[in-house]
Every structure is written in structure tokens, then in C-alpha cells.
């Protein structure tokens, strides 16, 4: 039985070096709300834990030319209290704030939620709908990756050995934009999404000029549903367009029957949530 080593570096370079030196046995600790639970359950036994919460770049929120940059280890509670981010990206903030309980929010981060690679991660569909770009640093330097390209399957990411997600960039966007995230859970709290749906819209003179739609928990990874976006763009978000977008969502689903929901139910709910999330995002877009 091996004891895990713990390091808390002060820079991304140092963290990347530690991970590279761990020979595949390293795990990044942000909030630890997934990692520590998995360790206690005996699911993972890392040799090295690299705590990234002392790295300034990974724990800061900043605005650059209208775009927001959010450190991958910023906690849900800090994001909840950030008025500027909340105003610009209410759907993203709501999604991040749905991770776990109030107590978990004090620790959990969007970076951890993404890298845990659960198909049901709440923050991911909202980030994908937002067109968020992840900044990733590894032994070979930095690269920018659209968020939807990071999950590779349940518990798996496309990150290369030693790579760390440093931050997310939420792009600047025109007036008349709004986003929303909805999930379905059987209870009202303390649960995992049976289906999650993120919608991001831009409206001009009552017409939808840009849209992104993402679904969670209906496939091995979060899905960017381009068919749903196509159905919305150019429309006035009339019933027909929304029903076509819902149908595209249902068609995109490749869910499984499991303890959290059935194929039939998940597929149906994907359409239901799309309609409800579009309504919220559209309302926000109109008032922006």
C-alpha cells in the first residue's frame, strides 16, 4: 500500500513539472470534491497529489477586452459572488453553482468538474454552449482547446500526460446575448443530472442570429448539438423552430439505461429541457 505525496506549487510551470515527474501517478487536486471521494472509495490511488489552489493564475477571475478568463480552480462560491461574471454569463454561473451542495461549492471548481470527465458534469454543457476555450499547459507548453474537445468518455479526457487545465476563456459577445443551463434531477438538490442542457443565444430585432446548444448525461461525453443551433438561428424562436431544435436534441442523444434514468426518459427530457432553456436564454438575451 503506497502513501500519496502532496505538493502545493505556486506556479503552473512548477505544477506541470511535478506532474511530468510523477510518471502517470500524479493527480491534480483543485477542490478535491471528486478526487478525495474516489480515493476514499479505493477507486484511485495516486502517488502524487498536486494541489493547484495556491497558483494565482488558476484561482483568479479577470476580464480582457470583453472576454472573461476564469481560473480552473476558482471555487463555485467565488463565482457565485462575482457580479460581473454573473451578469455576462448567468447560465454558466448557474451551472457551476449546481455542482454538489452548498458546502461542496466552497471547494468545487469548474476545472475539476471538467477534468473529472463525468458525462453528467453540470458546468460542462454550459461552458460548451458558451463557446468556452480552455487554456491547457503541459510539458510541451500551452495550447488553447475548445472545452467540448476535452472530455473523451466517462472518466477520460483528451489531455496529454502531464497537462493541466489552467483557465477558461468565455468570449466577448454582442449585445442581445443570453445563456441558460437547466438540468433534471429526481430530487431538488444533492443529485446528479439525468439530463443537462446549456443554451447560448444572440438575438437581434427578434431574430436569433447565433446559437449554441449542448447536452449532458445523454452520451459518453457532453454533446455540442449543432442541429439544434441550426434550427434556432434565423428563426424568431417560434414554436416550430423550437420544436425542430428539440427534435435535433432528441436525435443527438445516445444515452444508456442506468440507475439515474432510462434511454426513453433521457431522450424525451433532452427535448423538454431544450425548450425550457431556450425560453430562459431568450428572455435574458432580450433584456441585455
Amino acid at each position: 500500500m503506497m502513501e500519496a505525496q502532496y505538493r502545493a506549487p505556486g506556479s503552473v510551470d512548477e505544477a506541470v513539472a511535478l506532474m511530468a515527474g510523477a510518471g502517470g501517478k500524479g493527480r491534480v487536486l483543485a477542490g478535491g470534491t471528486d478526487l478525495l471521494v474516489q480515493m476514499r472509495a479505493g477507486m484511485v490511488a495516486p502517488g502524487l497529489i498536486v494541489d493547484v489552489k495556491r497558483i494565482a493564475e488558476m484561482t483568479a477571475i479577470s476580464q480582457i477586452a470583453g472576454a472573461w478568463r476564469v481560473g480552473a480552480a476558482v471555487t463555485g462560491a467565488e463565482i457565485h459572488d462575482h457580479a460581473g461574471l454573473k451578469k455576462a454569463w448567468p447560465g454558466v454561473v448557474e451551472a457551476i453553482n449546481l455542482i454538489g451542495s452548498k458546502q461542496v461549492q466552497g471547494r468545487a471548481s469548474a476545472g475539476g468538474n471538467l477534468c473529472n470527465a463525468s458525462p453528467a458534469a453540470d458546468s460542462v454543457p454550459a461552458l460548451v454552449a458558451a463557446g468556452a476555450i480552455a487554456t491547457v499547459q503541459g510539458p510541451n507548453g500551452r495550447r488553447e482547446v475548445p472545452v467540448e474537445q476535452i472530455p473523451a468518455g466517462p472518466g477520460k479526457t483528451s489531455l496529454k500526460p502531464g497537462e493541466i487545465v489552467v483557465s477558461f476563456t468565455l468570449p466577448a459577445r454582442p449585445a442581445g446575448s443570453g445563456d441558460a443551463y437547466l438540468r433534471l434531477i429526481p430530487r431538488t438538490e444533492m443529485d446528479i443530472a439525468v439530463v443537462g442542457c446549456g443554451v447560448n443565444l444572440t438575438m437581434k430585432d427578434g431574430t436569433c442570429t447565433a446559437a449554441r446548444v449542448a447536452l449532458g448525461a445523454v452520451a459518453p461525453t457532453v454533446l455540442l448539438v449543432e442541429g439544434a443551433a441550426k434550427a434556432l438561428v434565423g428563426s424568431k424562436l417560434d414554436d416550430k423552430a423550437i420544436e425542430a431544435a428539440a427534435a435535433a436534441c432528441r436525435a443527438a442523444c445516445k444515452p444508456i439505461d442506468d440507475k439515474r434514468g432510462t434511454i426513453v426518459y433521457r431522450t424525451k427530457i433532452a427535448g423538454v429541457l431544450l425548450k425550457r432553456a431556450v425560453a430562459i436564454a431568450a428572455e435574458r438575451a432580450r433584456s441585455n
Binding site: P186, R187, T188, E189, M190, D191, I192, D258, K259, R260
Partner: peptide
């Protein structure tokens, strides 16, 4: 209780054995 085809319990925890929470 949710069992798989081999008779193994799939939800041995409060996350997926859904007792009501206060907000319910």
C-alpha cells in the same frame, strides 16, 4: 434498490438511493 443482471446492487449510497432532501 437497483440491481444489475447478476443481482448486484448498483446504488449502495445516498446519492442514488434517493431519500428526500430538505428542499424536496
Amino acid at each position: 434498490y437497483i440491481y444489475d443482471a447478476k443481482g448486484r446492487l448498483l446504488n449502495p449510497g445516498f446519492l442514488d438511493y434517493r431519500m428526500p432532501v430538505a428542499s424536496d
